[in-house]
């Protein structure tokens, strides 16, 4: 969606157009949900925060400044809601649940073993993310999953770019170590199961 189309949808939604509001939600819910799921590891919490964030955004559309990105505004509100939710209840990073929510991006007909390995890699990344500090995890997710540039992450997190890079590099190294560990462990277990 171009920025012009998005602004048009925002205007229509502001005037009460449900179709436009629905289009806005559909355009952003996937990335927002994925971001929150990776931060929290909790799909129910992520769903609740996404819903609440959209409700807040749509009821406050008149406050949106079109000079800025709509998605950044949405993510900022969602993050605040997530932090508030975390303060109310301390969530546990449930990697099994996260793994269960993953979509199946594997081509049909791929050997079962390979498919299993792909799913295990997804579980492994959940466990690996769990090892990062909240800042490292958020920056790694924003950079690699959401593909935000460093400058945008720095603005979003109100941090110098150098600090963002530092968190990114440390987080990525830590993630790689745990990912490697869990990936190989999963693979060994899986192989043992197949041989047995």
């Amino acid at each position: 969606m171009t920025k012009g189309e998005e602004l048009r949808l925002i205007e229509l939604a502001q005037a009460g157009d449900h179709d436009a509001a629905s289009a806005l939600i559909r355009a952003h819910q996937k990335s927002l949900f994925a971001y929150l799921l990776r931060l929290s590891g909790n799909p129910e919490l992520s769903e609740d925060v996404v819903q609440d964030a959209f409700v807040r955004v749509l009821t406050n559309l008149h406050r949106f400044d079109p000079r800025f990105r709509f998605s950044t505004w949405l993510f900022t509100i969602a993050k605040r809601l997530y932090v508030n939710a975390c303060q109310k209840m301390k969530p546990v990073y449930d990697t099994d649940v996260v793994g269960g929510r993953q979509g199946n991006g594997v081509e049909p007909g791929l050997p079962t073993l390979l498919r299993e390995r792909t799913n295990n890699a997804r579980d492994a990344i959940g466990r690996a993310l769990q090892q990062l500090s909240s800042e490292q995890r958020e920056i790694v997710v924003l950079f690699h999953q959401q593909e935000w540039p460093i400058t945008r992450i720095a603005e979003f997190m109100d941090m110098p770019e150098g600090t963002v890079k530092s968190h990114l590099h440390r987080g990525r190294r830590k993630m790689r170590k745990y990912f490697e560990l869990h990936e190989s462990a999963d693979w060994a277990n899986e192989f043992a199961g197949v041989v047995a």
């Binding site: 629905s22 819910q29 819903q51 749509l58 890699a121 492994a124 990344i125 990525r172 993630m175």
Partner: peptide, 23 residues
């Protein structure tokens, strides 16, 4: 290994359609 981790991070996430609930 790092690249595999990044790929895994980018793997698609099954997202529920929340538009009905929001509206």
């Amino acid at each position: 290994s790092t690249q595999r981790a990044i790929e895994a991070l980018r793997s698609p996430v099954r997202t529920p359609d929340l538009s009905g609930r929001v509206l």
